[in-house]
Design a protein around this nucleic acid. Structure first.
Lengths: 81, 81, 81, 81
DNA sequence: CACTGGAAAATGCCGC
DNA sequence: GCGGCATTTTCCAGTG
């Protein structure tokens, strides 16, 4: 194989390795998060509600208000008071 | 192969066929739903809000109230007023 | 309410109705699938293994599709369109 | 507020903090991955194809694990434990 | 009844 | 910018 071919090959291998390494770390952290929730449940917390809180806090306040406004409009249209 | 073996084999094939047939129908309906949302978007509706309405209506009122109560409790604990 | 408002209102109701109708059908089919598995179990089949077979077959089909996709990707990369 | 209430409150804060901390790390790693792909693209690689390779390798690993699982299932079905 | 694992929903991203 | 697709998250049923 040519030099160029070899280099591309080595580069490719490096890219895949780095991505897979990062993804391994991500998966590990996802497991950590799951563990936190599991521990919380065993301490009497409602995990579904906890997830909702985290989601809520993550949303930008402005966007959130706009979204709520639209949802309310739809609810009113449908008579869901 | 024995009669019993043959029958089990035929039964197995039948089960898999039926399941896959049902799953094909499910997938088709899921596509239909996606199409409805796409059409709604092109008519100026906010799809994310529509999804939330559908989710909301699906939840049992009792469960929904209990869930909201817990979320509110947590929000208060965290000073999220 | 204005004509436009009324129309939007009717459209909204229609969208929600159609989505909910489709979701009812989906749920019904999901129940059908569960019934097939239950019946299979009562005939001595291992449901977990059956599910795995269905999943494998789906993966194989998907893999074939993905193979086609990657071949196309490479063709495009090489200007072989 | 009661001691118990205070403790629950502190626990709640702790849970949310830990989850948000972990999610921050996850997001950072996801950005790292995106950067790797961006760099790869600037080196002439086809990012879509790279993603497919990573996905294939993940599927292969999973398939191997699933194969083991189904073999175990069959062994158990046959009393070969 | 908690926990894993698998199905479905939702979000986000990348192309055109 | 949006439409399609991939990833991620959420939910739920089965299992021990």
């Amino acid at each position: 194989m040519s030099e160029a071919g070899h280099n591309a090959n080595a580069q490719l291998k490096s890219i895949i390795d780095r991505v897979e390494s990062v993804e391994t770390e991500i998966k590990s952290l996802q497991t950590d998060r799951a563990d936190i929730y599991t521990e919380a449940r065993s301490n009497g917390f409602d995990v579904k509600a906890l997830r909702e809180i985290v989601r809520f806090r993550k949303q930008d306040a402005q966007k959130r208000a706009e979204h709520e406004a639209i949802v309310d409009t739809y609810k009113n249209s449908l008579g869901m008071t």
